[in-house]
Design a binder for these strands. Structure first.
Lengths: 229, 229
DNA sequence: ATATAACATTGATATAGAACAACTTTTTAT
DNA sequence: ATAAAAAGTTGTTCTATATCAATGTTATAT
């Protein structure tokens, strides 16, 4: 990770909720410089167990949000793409992150002092409500993930995650930014079975797969598989 | 479920954060009557998929928070005992509950108009922060549950839940308010294996079990089992 | 250009835990 | 008091999936 520059919001690629509030409520004072950091592929953006010191906002690149389990086995809960709050779930509760976020390609992240954010939402609940809403959505998605992980079998789980990826990339054709092992971690499946299932789906002409390039050929069937289990 | 009475906060068994805020910010106006409802054992307090219309506060009794999965299989995420917000996780996000809460013994619940709460936290973020903090704690506990369900085996999961129950009841000896099946749902284990494991633990003198009365005899060992898997 | 490491693939094996079945005990209702 | 339903128990079978092992392929670094 390398801190690249202090950036004025005006110059930033992406305007976040926080920027908007800063403008409204603080006028000229809004022109604070925020720290921007650049993360390379595979870099850890925030680490389970470490202190929460900043609010972070994903400005560019894809990242994965995962929990580190036993025996170095991780479970990825969801992917993040801009605009997204990073570390939102640990924002209000604890001084420590209860999960980790890692870059799956080069990422740019805006760091905002936690104290500043806290001051801000004292003056402005629209912001707080915004954060809360994003928070709530995360939770809803996690709950449905729990069911999926526990009650669907691996075929259904892989199908589900392929659909998820397709939605993320907003296309039937996409390049996996993730290794087979990482795909497996999204569905809590071993690397080997992940490979097997992807080939299986390809053989059945449900998807076309070439290295990390995927094309979904039969979305309705994929949906059916994901629903049945 | 039966609505028993409109209750003045002054008369209520338990003063919640909301009451406190009402007093501080609204003085006499605080003496709103809140609807109190009485739920019997096994009654659903809030139901996954239905609309969120009130903030609810558990005043008396134990309840379980669970998600309804496929084939009528539920997973219980945690138990609730007073004082506790019910339905907190769906509070900010969605109009619909993304999980259910059911009484595991007779419960008394205070219903507060959602609009009133919303008005309140516009005037008072201490309240909002309070809610957020409780929210955050839930999430942290859920994340660790995901790991447990996926990466520990049933022996470890049952051990973990026995420890959890002991903490809930704040004693090494307690009466399960839950059936074997329901205990199983806390750990995502079949009813049969739940029975088997409990007997096994009893045979090994880790616990003493008589019907639904449990005594933990060897807590250190139980902890070890829960950590190993 | 070559070595080394990371990633991907395929087959064989082992096992944790669900599902089934049959039966007993306890609780609830009439 | 009796029937019916719910809850608890135990043994057996079956299968989904991890794990192991061996090998191929693609990147990365020197």
């Amino acid at each position: 990770m390398r801190f690249t520059k202090n950036t004025k919001c005006d110059d930033c690629l992406l305007k976040c909720d926080i920027h908007e509030v800063l403008c409204k409520t603080q006028g000229e004072r809004a022109k604070v410089n925020h720290l921007h950091a650049h993360f390379k592929k595979h870099d850890i953006i925030c680490k389970q167990g470490t202190e929460v010191t900043h609010a972070m906002f994903l400005v560019k690149g894809f990242a994965k949000m995962f929990i580190e389990g036993l025996n170095n086995k991780n479970i990825t809960l969801y992917l993040l793409k801009p605009p997204a709050y990073i570390g939102l779930l640990s924002f209000f509760d604890s001084p420590k992150y209860s999960y980790s976020v890692a870059a799956i390609e080069d990422c740019q992240v805006c760091f905002i002092e936690l104290d500043l954010v806290k001051k801000m939402y004292v003056d402005n609940h629209d912001l707080l409500l915004c954060l809360n809403q994003a928070f709530g959505k995360s939770v809803t998605s996690i709950l449905s993930k729990i069911i999926s992980l526990n009650q669907k079998q691996i075929r259904g789980r892989i199908a589900e995650n392929l659909i998820y990826l397709s939605k993320m990339y907003d296309s039937q054709e996409f390049h996996l930014k993730l290794s087979r092992k990482e795909i497996g971690e999204m569905a809590a499946i071993s690397e080997e079975n992940t490979v097997r299932l992807l080939s299986e789906f390809a053989k059945e002409s449900i998807i076309k797969i070439n290295g990390r390039d995927v094309e979904i050929l039969d979305m309705p069937l994929l949906k059916k598989i994901s629903e049945v289990g």
